[in-house]
């Protein structure tokens, strides 16, 4: 059976898996953003915490995805919520780190000038530091999202569905069509997410930072 006819036959199953996959990615990354951006802002204002927290989150990042899912499976049981929790945890590091460095890398001369002309810390944060950190933050979100599209293929393992399910079935039954039907859309999905967020990255970069003379 050719891939095309296979995909035609299994259309509804593939679309279902794809929808599940997108859900997993979008919600876990949103959750990750909700946690990491405020946390990054907090760390930038309490720098004593920054090194230990970033190191700890870094260690979590070295836990292989399979291990993380396995542990979550035992601790939290099967299902979509478990997968979301694990994926959200994975999405934290790049966004957190980029938020923190984006804010703290703002040139000290700019900070001194801001303070010297009477901006409060909050005004500095919202009018200067966060706008200047936007590119870095969005880039962190892009990196996270690409990771999460990848890790979400493992979610099938704990019964959360997604395109991984198809690859899984393919691997178990040595069925090339199933493998391709899961692998190709997941790769395309990763490219799409990366491309679209990359576009946002460019759009959101403050014009004054784009370099080059007008």
């Amino acid at each position: 059976m050719t891939l095309m006819t296979f995909m035609g036959e299994q259309r509804s199953e593939i679309i279902k898996a794809l929808t599940q996959h997108i859900h997993l990615v979008v919600f876990s990354v949103l959750l990750g953003i909700l946690i990491s951006i405020p946390a990054g802002i907090f760390l930038s204002r309490h720098k004593a915490f920054a090194a230990p927290v970033l190191a700890a989150v870094g260690v979590i990042q070295t836990i292989p995805g399979l291990v993380m899912l396995g542990l979550a499976l035992i601790l939290l049981g099967t299902g979509t919520q478990t997968a979301l929790a694990v994926l959200a945890v994975y999405s934290i590091l790049p966004i957190l780190r980029n938020t923190y460095t984006g804010i703290t890398e703002v040139d000290s001369g700019i900070l001194e000038a801001g303070r010297g002309i009477g901006m409060t810390r909050r005004q500095m944060l919202f009018n200067v530091q966060l706008p200047l950190a936007t590119t870095s933050i969005v880039s962190g979100i892009r990196i996270s999202t690409v990771y999460i599209v990848s890790w979400a293929t493992l979610a099938g393992l704990i019964g959360a569905g997604g395109l991984g399910d198809l690859i899984w079935t393919g691997l178990a039954t040595y069925n090339t069509n199933y493998i391709l039907a899961g692998a190709l859309p997941s790769a395309v999905l990763a490219f799409l997410f990366s491309g679209v967020i990359g576009l946002f990255e460019r759009l959101l970069t403050p014009r004054g930072l784009k370099g080059g003379r007008a």
Binding site: V146, S150, A152, A187, S194
Partner: peptide, 8 residues
């Protein structure tokens, strides 16, 4: 590197 690892 963008291709999901399981897929690759």
């Amino acid at each position: 590197q963008t291709i999901p690892s399981l897929a690759l």
